[in-house]
Write a protein that binds this DNA or RNA. Structure first.
Lengths: 256, 256
DNA sequence: CGTCACCTTGAGTATTGTCAACTCGGGTGG
DNA sequence: CCACCCGAGTTGACAATACTCAAGGTGACG
């Protein structure tokens, strides 16, 4: 059989082993050993990259796998009873998409995942992952941690959307993104937004015009430098203050 | 030693075995067998009931266990960077509190759980639960499902708080509560709210005055009968329409 | 060079929050 | 037993934040 070897060749060309992967520390359990990585590696499917706008999975389709983002970015949406779409989350490299669908009573995906740009993912078939987790306590624990983090992230958004002003929402959103960039050892002050203003607005419960206006205003305040989807945080301290609702008119650093 | 037997007596008086528990189908994995229930039962601690206002766990305390609500009701809050409290969830009998704290990087609880009325809980020490889950695939799967449900619930609240009007939020909130009552085989149309208007408001991202006004208005519209914390759903169909944003002026059932 | 997203900016509006006064009911203490 | 107090809830008046509608502007791509 030549096909397997060809398959392996392609795999290696794409540098697609967990042990080689630069995202390894973000995505995998911390205390996992070589043999365990191999076992995990064996259940992973690495499909071809999705083009921008491509659908990774669709609400209502049979749930089979969760996905680790390798490169690019994903948004997840779910449709409200009244038919509109709600952007429930953004997923960057090293993050896991689809955890919300695991226990969906219908057995289907509960949301739709769409690529915001060219995006590569690792598919983790959930049945196999579960079996493996029963054997590898580290992996089981890691999965619990991941899901728990997702819960905390969602609760933070709840908080954001429920009780904070538009300024605070945007500031917090940018700081959160920045922290996620930093975790991947990228610049924490120079962010390229993979999503549109409209996606941001939808996710934060704002009108897209409001998002646009606030970006402009933050730029006038010299907190950000905005150029389309490139955002530079020029005054991180001030951005943090805004995020925390410190709306004092002037900077009074001596007054603390 | 007499203490253990006394302890057992108390246990049996309180009818505190999973196998006897009426909430069994809500709380436990569906396909679990007798022996497995026993194992689970053995790791559970049943503390004395909490009085109203009692703290089950506090943000920042070392995370040790998650809790199944046996009777009463719990709210969870987390404090925002700016110091205010946000009510992140309400937990009724059969539901599990504390899942958001499992993977908290600090190893502490990430929120505070407070009893809304006299409340009894079963403590599930998480280390033991995890070990057991590795042996019982049903239990492991059930835990994944529970956490996943929590994610979906939070996303629903996100949606609610982000994109829906105050009327829609209240209507949806009541319908969700109603469904949770029904699951416990209680009346789905007669709800006793364990939480204050202020808690509801906080959870839904509204001012408490707004909640109060909407309750009054829904009563005038003959959708609800409200008497303090007792709420009767008198026109469920209409309530659903409101929840879905169907704000047509009059009822026109023939026009469908 | 035109088209099509995506984004920005402006004007007017309205839903909801804030401040404030008042009611109701339960529990406590005189 | 009654008066009082306190927390919870209700209601009203007013203000403001953010939405809607509308009209351009900009950049990418054919």
């Amino acid at each position: 059989m030549e096909i397997p070897s060809r398959h392996n060749l392609i795999k290696s060309l794409r540098q697609t082993h967990c042990s080689d992967c630069a995202l390894n520390p973000v995505c995998l359990p911390p205390a996992i050993d070589e043999g365990e990585i191999q076992q995990l590696d064996d259940i992973i499917n690495r499909n071809r990259p999705l083009a921008r706008g491509g659908v990774l999975f669709h609400e209502g389709l049979a749930f089979e796998a969760v996905f680790a983002v390798r490169s690019g970015a994903i948004k997840t949406c779910s449709s409200t009873p009244s038919g509109e779409e709600q952007v429930t989350g953004f997923y960057l490299p090293g993050e896991i998409v689809g955890l919300d669908s695991i226990g969906n009573p219908s057995g289907n995906y509960g949301s739709t995942a769409i690529a915001l740009e060219t995006t590569a993912v690792c598919a983790l078939p959930f049945d196999a992952l579960q079996e493996l987790a029963a054997q590898l306590p580290n992996l089981q624990h890691h999965l619990f941690r991941l899901m728990s983090s997702e819960i905390r992230a969602d609760q933070q958004v709840m908080q954001l959307v429920g009780r904070r002003t538009a300024d605070e929402r945007i500031a917090t959103f940018l700081l959160t993104l920045s922290a996620r960039y930093k975790r991947r050892h990228l610049s924490e002050n120079h962010i390229h937004l993979p999503m549109s203003r409209s996606d941001i607005a939808n996710h934060l419960g704002l009108a897209l015009e409001t998002v646009s206006r606030i970006f402009t205003r933050f730029q006038q305040m010299e907190v950000l430098k905005v150029n389309g989807r490139d955002v530079e945080i020029s005054n991180r301290q001030r951005l943090k203050e805004i995020a925390n609702g410190d709306n004092e008119v002037a900077s009074c650093p001596t007054h603390v």
